[in-house]
């Protein structure tokens, strides 16, 4: 770890922000910071599959000039905004069951084709929430034995097949650490994650382990260290997250 860079970043933080010891983000702020940051990962022309919940919010922050096509495991390429109006069409839904419109150029297909896109390497990026993620890039997101077993749906296929796997999640869960040396919950996939985005920081997953590339200016690198069990290196180009 390069201490000089740490100190420089720390000084910058101190100059720009008045940090207070009781600083806390609301759920809404957390959601927005993550969704905004995730949206920056999409390139013009990308086909992207978003997980249910927080990841779905990223679609709202894609700038209009960037054309991103959203795919859904229930058989839709070109998801539009939520349906509104007097005559909703119950036969067009997204993977969360919400009624949606379709974009120009959209198409419908069956589950076999949807999963061919996902498992077969035809999706540019996927964004998923997680219960845990570890320094090897493994992800756990589908069950807590004895407590919560919703099932994996199409997530296991997606994580194995998508060209880029982005985990977008709250940094901790009720104080529990989620970025670990090794996941303790049953895995969704082994070593498939490329990027981890939380409200506090961004980690790239590399063959050499995690690299911290961005930090929320309200937090220090020591805060990040204290809130994960994973080992990580700090990038030479570490930046402040735009929030």
């Amino acid at each position: 770890m390069n201490l000089t860079i740490n100190q420089a970043l720390q000084d910058k933080i101190e100059q720009q922000y008045q940090r207070s010891s009781d600083f806390a983000l609301t759920k809404e702020q957390i959601r927005e910071i993550i969704a905004r940051r995730v949206a920056k990962e999409f390139k013009d022309g990308d086909v992207v599959t978003l997980g249910i919940g927080l990841p779905t919010a990223a679609a709202d922050y894609v700038p209009e000039e960037k054309h991103v096509i959203f795919q859904s495991e229930n058989g839709l390429l070109g998801i539009g905004k939520s349906q509104s109006g007097a005559n909703p069409d119950p036969h067009i839904i997204n993977a969360g069951g919400g009624l949606v419109e379709v974009q120009e150029g959209a198409c419908f297909f069956d589950s076999a084709t949807a999963l061919t896109m996902m498992r077969g390497g035809h999706i540019d990026a996927t964004v998923l929430g997680a219960l845990q993620v570890d320094e090897e890039g493994s992800i756990a997101s589908w069950m807590i034995p004895g407590k919560l077993i919703p099932g994996m749906g199409g997530s296991m296929d997606l994580v194995v097949g998508a060209k880029r796997v982005i985990v977008a999640m709250e940094h901790t869960s009720k104080g529990e650490k989620k970025i670990l040396k090794k996941c303790t919950l049953p895995l969704t996939a082994y070593r498939e994650v490329d990027l981890i985005i939380t409200e506090r920081c961004v980690f790239e997953v590399t063959p050499d382990g995690l690299i911290l590339t961005e930090v929320n200016p309200h937090f220090t690198i020591d805060d990040i260290k204290a809130s994960v069990t994973a080992d990580f290196k700090v990038s030479e180009n570490v930046k402040l997250m735009e929030i």
Binding site: N74, L76, H91, I93, F108, D110, S111, A112
Partner: peptide, 12 residues
């Protein structure tokens, strides 16, 4: 024939 996202696993 199908309309919308109703195909899902029906076809298979």
């Amino acid at each position: 024939t199908f309309h919308g996202t109703t195909r899902n696993m029906n076809t298979i």
